[in-house]
Amino acid sequence: MTTPMVEARGVHKHYGSHEVLKGVDLTVVRGEVTCLIGPSGSGKSTLLRCINHLEKHDAGELRVDGELVGYVARDGKLYELNDKQICGERAQIGMVFQRFNLFSHLNVLDNVTIGQVKVKGVNTDEAKTKARQLLERVGLADKEKHYPSQLSGGQQQRVAIARALAMEPKLMLFDEPTSALDPELVGEVLDVMKDLARSGMTMIVVTHEMGFAREVANTVYFLDGGVIEESGDPRVVLTSPTSERLKGFLSKVL
């Protein structure tokens, strides 16, 4: 059996005295789509941010592609990675944010090339060619000279996906990618994500879109109060939940 893309064992995280993650176990298989659902404050975004080390987890073991996140184990000790090593880990994990976070001083094309050029050292022409292919893929080939403020939310989010894909990540993280969008723009972003899922990308998606979870996800994890309440095949978990919490949650969101 191959190593899973992401493996979490008893991951804890707290801010001050507030414990956000209280021992989370999770396994993400290569090439599969995993959805994290749950009420706000349940820790799903925090878990996602721990995976690419935007947040440091306090306890437990978190591995991406078999490697510990943020640490290296040597002689029975854990050594914290330095800035450069962490950047190297992050460059292989794409992330898409709820509020897009496109670089507002750069046009669409530059947003998609800057990571390739500055982090991976790809030459500018190659980076542009790749960026144009990706913009074509997300349906925004005609917008390359636009600035983010000149685009709709849905278009910005599609550029953000292209920006993340430009780094050729082995794993894509989506943090509520459609929560800040007007309802009629949600579809265009989900379509891009479905297309990406079909292409075999390993994806972890924090979402409130139950329809998407049911249709695309291989596994759904329901988080509540910092622990995983229930997980499994979305067709089973979302249609016949066993825990009271999930039943209550689904009755509110559906």
Binding site: N52, L54, D83, K84, C87, G88, R90, A91, Q92, I93, G94, M95, F97, R99, N101, L102, F103, S104, H105, I114, G115, K118, V119, K120, A160, R163, A164, M167
Partner: peptide, 30 residues
């Protein structure tokens, strides 16, 4: 400059110096 900008830069694998130089400072200039 919105914190999301440096988070996005970090998520692309930029180190602190690159984030400052290519993302934060140009926007702070305004």
């Amino acid at each position: 400059v919105d914190e999301g900008q440096s988070e996005a830069a970090s998520s692309l694998g930029m180190n602190r110096g690159q984030t400052l130089r290519y993302v934060v400072l140009p926007q702070a200039m305004r």
